[in-house]
Amino acid sequence: MIELKNITKSFGEGASAVKALDDITLKVPSGAIYGVVGASGAGKSTLIRCVNLLERPSSGDVLVNGQNLVKMNDRELRQTRRDIGMIFQHFNLLSSRTVYDNIALPLELAGKSKAEIHEAIEPLLQLTGLDEKRQSYPSQLSGGQKQRVAIARALASKPAVLLCDEATSALDPKTTNAILQLLKDINKQLGITILLITHEMEVVKSICDRVAILHGGRLIEENAVEQFFIQPQTEIAREFVRSALHEKQPAELEADFHKEPREGSRPVVRISFMGHSAVEPLITQAARQFNVDISILQADMETVHGNRMGFLTAELIGDEAATQAATNYLQQHPVQVEVLGYVN
């Protein structure tokens, strides 16, 4: 388990100081895949580098499996880092070493014998599908293969925690999916806790259990992934959800869209539901019972965290009391209805 408590990190001093992290508190449960998303410069890399103290926080505590890294001396910290694997956007493999020897590095550093190293590496080569590449040098590998080597290397010392800093950002979509699948398998098979940071919501959508949003160095939202997609709380979160679902802004769908109701305006709602809810009859029912027209502007089915989920954007046409009643009716069922704004 990873726990960050009131982490603050500033770069530079005085007037030119940059506050990269501002009072971040978060908890990554054991065995979870936890995603942190944010725009460029939000502080994601700084945050993940604080977990193994590659970056020392200006203040706050970093607990990994209950041990406070901030309080450790150099020797204790090195020892603890062996229990925290890390992979990077640009792989960071040693060009002078073969695949096998790259994976062996953390074990060599820990003073393991040749036999112990061999025993640890063989299953990793199988797990990451690198068996035939063991004698290749990194320059002879594709990006995806390089990241597999980096993953195997990070796992070699059997860490409890894996940190991934934009691990798929240098890869094409197909390779990205394969690497994400591998991370998921590792999480399942080894029970390893994964903290990953990314600017791609797709990554969160496909493998994360929980997600946090970082914005300007602050953690502005945190939730289980399904809940996050159904009901994002902040405008920035909504923006991320939209981008992951390829949803359009209501304003792009309806030219005269506005946030506040006006005289005679019609609500635009976002309806989200788990794939099994029979949403069509429900909508038909609501329309009939309250005498409103429900005009679907956009509809999409997506797999989020392994669940089929549906997302509709619809305009409710009818008098105010009727649309309100229809909304209430829908909300009593296992669907989420959120009023996005109004059109005239």
């Binding site: 062996r82 960071n92 040693l94 590095l105 953390p106 820990a110 010392s157």
Partner: peptide, 10 residues
């Protein structure tokens, strides 16, 4: 990055 990776391995 290589130095950093090694540091992360302890």
């Amino acid at each position: 990055g290589l130095v950093e990776a090694a540091e992360s391995m302890g």
